[in-house]
């Protein structure tokens, strides 16, 4: 609509009113973009930060996640167990056993630093977000609950084919030095 503009470059009153009616009439004709959530699954973008899942076998109780957490919402208890030497005269070994791993999602700000910092790939982002509770205190989830969420963790994205090889691969494939 090429409307006559006034001194300040605006459309006149009547074209403006008609444009408003035309716009609303057009959007009546278009289908709505409402997703009726509880009945229709939302389409979440990849790498959605829904909840943090724990792969307990990978955890060494190193406490890095708990120490890096900005709001200290990760609780870890562990003890050391002695593994007797398998061979005669050998040395006994010690290993950490995880007693408690809990994340308080009422404090968590979903920064993902714990996931980033974990050197043993024990923490993962899961897109699962339906864990609302009626009581704030019920948002403190222990390791069994965190472990259940591992099933919802999506597979890692495929590697970029045109990316350079990892340093280890490059090192392994390096031609031997001439002697």
């Amino acid at each position: 609509m090429s409307a006559p503009k006034d001194k300040r470059g605006r459309d006149g009153i009547l074209p403006g009113l008609l444009k408003g009616m035309a716009t609303t009439a057009k959007s009546v004709m278009r289908p709505t973009h409402t997703a009726e959530y509880p009945h229709a699954e939302p389409t979440l973008p990849p790498r959605s930060r829904g909840v943090i899942a724990l792969l307990e076998e990978n955890c060494t109780s190193c406490m890095l996640c708990a120490r890096e957490c900005p709001d200290w919402c990760i609780y870890i208890d562990s003890h050391k167990e002695t593994i007797p030497a398998t061979t005669e005269g050998g040395r006994d070994r010690q290993r950490n056993v995880l007693d408690r791993f809990a994340i308080d999602f009422s404090l968590c700000m979903y920064c993902g630093i714990c996931v980033e910092v974990c050197p043993f790939d024990a923490l993962f982002w899961s897109p699962q977000f339906e864990y609302a509770e009626y009581d704030l205190r019920d948002l403190l989830h222990e390791k069994d609950r965190l472990g259940e969420w591992m099933a919802t963790v999506p597979p890692p994205p495929a590697l970029n084919e045109s990316a350079a090889d990892p340093a280890e691969v490059t090192a392994a494939n390096r031609p031997e030095r001439g002697r």
């Binding site: 609303t24 009439a25 959007s27 278009r30 709505t32 409402t34 009726e36």
Partner: peptide
Amino acid sequence: KLMAHMQGRLGPM
């Protein structure tokens, strides 16, 4: 309903 659809919503459902 009409207002909802004019605004790209569904209105009461």
